[in-house]
């Protein structure tokens, strides 16, 4: 069996060209039906099909793992705690960066495809998602030793991390689909990417990994852009670039509508 080190992700998806290498190298090529998702006023989420081909001259079966991640952003989380009968928020914990969207699609459960260490190394799967831990830490005196650095979350860290993932899963922003990759023909596969309406705008990355015997043997990467277009974009940019003018116009519009309505109704 051939063992290749995981090649660095390509910037652009190579077209499945009939290269000479396909005769003796295990390779995967993939493309998206739609690399630009346009968010306009009728946007209700999007469904994108990723399709691709596996060139596998060996006898060892290969597993396809599709990973899509959205733009990273900070996440703030609070935990509700009960104080004298009232549920109050704890101090918020800031996770510096968590992908705004994350999904994996495979043809069988990830844990069957590769072992824990391998997945952890590549950061594949919700359990191995890299969510930057809170920077916050403090120094304490413990057992007489001064300046011991403790993460403020301590042993609760895993709970907080799981909560980020669970809440995002509830919003359909994080997703694991162990049957998401379907082979339409020998070597030809497709996977569906479901973007909910709340999916953040920005640059997304779709990666397709090929695993053989638990080892990554090939990978390819594509870009996916989700952006606001048309009037949605104009309004959004106006509100960000000239917030005060925007606010004043909102008020004038509201006052005018109220005035117009009372005129219309008086005439009737």
């Amino acid at each position: 069996m051939m063992q290749l080190p995981p090649p660095p992700p390509a910037v652009e998806a190579p077209a499945p060209s009939p290269s000479i290498a396909t005769t003796d190298q295990v390779r995967v090529a993939a493309a998206l039906t739609n690399a630009e998702v346009r968010v306009d006023s009728s946007f209700r989420g999007a469904s994108i099909v990723l399709y691709g081909a596996v060139f596998n001259p060996t006898d060892t079966p290969a597993d396809v793992v599709v990973v899509v991640r959205g733009p990273d952003g900070p996440v703030r989380l609070v935990k509700k705690t009960r104080n004298t009968g009232v549920w109050l928020n704890s101090r918020p914990v800031l996770f510096e960066g968590a992908p705004g969207f994350y999904m994996t699609a495979t043809s069988r459960p990830l844990s069957d495809i590769a072992d824990f260490g391998q997945l952890r190394r590549e950061g594949i799967g919700l359990d191995h998602l890299r969510i930057n831990a809170p920077e916050e830490s403090r120094t304490v005196t413990r057992y007489g030793v001064r300046d011991v650095v403790v993460s403020r979350l301590g042993e609760d860290y895993l709970d907080w991390r799981r909560a980020v993932i669970r809440l995002r899963e509830d919003a359909a922003l994080y997703n694991t689909d162990p049957t998401g990759v379907t082979f339409v023909d020998r070597g030809l596969f497709r996977a569906q990417i479901e973007l909910p309406a709340v999916a953040p705008t920005g640059k997304y990355e779709a990666e397709v990994w090929l695993f053989q015997d638990g080892q990554p043997v090939s990978a390819t990467q594509m870009d996916l852009t989700v952006e606001k277009v048309g009037i949605e974009r104009d309004i959004y940019e106006f509100s960000q670039n000239r917030p005060w003018t925007y606010g004043i116009l909102c008020v004038l519009l509201a006052a005018f509508t109220g005035w117009a309505a009372s005129r219309v109704f008086r005439r009737n």
Binding site: I235, S239, Q240, Y246, G247, C250, T257
Partner: peptide
């Protein structure tokens, strides 16, 4: 308040408020 929220927090959605006020004024 609307001007301040728009200016300070960028949280005024004009599409949302317009839809609401179309029904609201009537």
């Amino acid at each position: 308040t609307t001007v301040l929220q728009a200016g300070r927090n960028q949280t005024v959605d004009v599409v949302l408020s317009t839809i609401l006020l179309l029904g609201g004024v009537v």
